[in-house]
């Protein structure tokens, strides 16, 4: 079995790896945006609660949270499908990190522009939607890329809950062929290529929506 054949064998799992990465990244963006927006708009007690949320979910290992959700919750009568378990663990943890990224990016929005929007008569929610979020998202691109990369790198945990991603394919292949070194080397290359694709893709998107003079 040549190295190329190994690579081809493994590509069967690429779709699942990308699906897990995208699903968890989107979960992260939704959770992160929600948390960052609420703590920008909300009362101080609410920001304290949200601060605790981000601290806890940044302190618990992905693997532990995944096991809590997938293997633990059935004890409490709650059975969660594998992909949802990944979203509730890896995705929510990514959300906690992204909330911090977004918070920092919100702080980069010029306060005088917010004041001008108020003086114009826009509501607080309109200011958030029309001024702050469009700018914030652009400031947050580097941080988002970091976080999406992290999600991709933790996505192989999906094999522990039975999702047939690249890692799972590699494990079954190495069990039958005993060529682990080549197989895992191929796996590394596949992940690296997905990583490059992801980074290039996000920057291309950023470039298309770039505004002169906003993000240096």
């Amino acid at each position: 079995m040549s190295f190329l054949q190994i690579l081809l064998q493994l590509t069967g799992g690429v779709g699942y790896t990308i699906m897990v990465t995208v699903a968890c990244s989107l979960t992260g963006v939704v959770v992160g945006l929600g948390v960052a927006m609420l703590s920008r708009l909300g009362a101080s007690w609410l920001s304290a609660v949200l601060g605790a949320f981000t601290f806890i979910f940044r302190a618990v290992p992905v693997l532990v949270l995944l096991f809590i959700v997938f293997f633990g919750l059935p004890n409490a009568g709650l059975r969660v499908p594998p992909l949802v378990a990944m979203m509730l663990s890896l995705g929510v943890i990514a959300g906690a990190y992204l909330a911090e990224v977004f918070r920092g990016a919100f702080d980069s929005v010029d306060a005088s522009e917010v004041l001008a929007a108020e003086a114009m008569g826009l509501s607080r929610f309109q200011i958030l939607r029309l001024i702050e979020i469009p700018q914030m998202l652009r400031f947050a691109v580097p941080g988002m890329i970091n976080e999406f990369t992290t999600v991709l790198k933790y996505s192989p945990f999906a094999y522990t809950v039975g999702i047939p991603d690249v890692m799972k394919e590699a494990m079954s292949l190495s069990a039958t062929t005993l060529r682990g070194v080549e197989i895992y080397l191929a796996v590394g290359i596949i992940y690296f290529l997905i990583y490059k694709l992801l980074v290039t893709g996000v920057w291309a998107l950023e470039k298309r929506t770039r505004i002169p003079g906003l993000t240096g």
Binding site: T149, M167, R179, G180, E182, V187
Partner: peptide, 14 residues
């Protein structure tokens, strides 16, 4: 760009 777990598996199982 690559998951740590892949490297660990390469060395441990490969």
């Amino acid at each position: 760009g690559t998951p740590l777990i892949v490297l660990l598996f390469l060395m441990y199982y490969g």
